[in-house]
């Protein structure tokens, strides 16, 4: 799905300068935990998150995320937007809640590739965590 389609589906605004809306994505990952993004996301996917700090951009850079959508109208600080521009990662902002943003993209056929990969369950928290 192309990024301009995603922008239209989510009524989103592109907030980076050099965003190339000709890019396309094949899958979506959704999380506020960057640890989970680093562990479970697929290369080239779209990231939906409600977290707006600079570590989101760094995480996307390392995990080869193609585009980030911030939900609930949350806008990152200018410094964070600049970092995304520098790393050539398009940023979009939508007023939709996370559930609705995911639902709309799911309805249009996008999926999380990782969802089909079976893995061992995460061990429950130990004392002190």
């Amino acid at each position: 799905m192309s990024l301009d389609e995603i922008r239209d589906i989510l009524n989103a605004t592109v907030i980076t300068h050099q965003a190339s809306l000709r890019n396309s994505v094949e899958s979506v990952y959704c999380a506020d935990l960057m640890s989970d993004v680093l562990s479970f996301s697929d290369s080239g996917c779209l990231l939906i998150t409600g977290l707006t700090n600079a570590q989101v951009i760094r995480t996307a850079e390392m995990a080869a995320i193609s585009v980030i959508v911030f939900v609930q109208g949350k806008r990152p600080a200018l410094q964070t937007i600049r970092l995304a521009d520098e790393k050539d990662i398009p940023l979009l902002v939508t007023d939709l809640p996370m559930f609705d943003a995911c639902g709309r993209l799911f309805e249009k056929g996008l999926r999380s590739q990782s969802a089909s990969i079976s893995r061992a369950p995460i061990v429950a928290c130990h004392e002190g965590c």
Binding site: L33, S35, L38, Q55, C129
Partner: peptide
């Protein structure tokens, strides 16, 4: 709160 420290590192 920054999205880290979930014990996955």
């Amino acid at each position: 709160a920054m999205g880290f420290g979930s014990g996955m590192g």
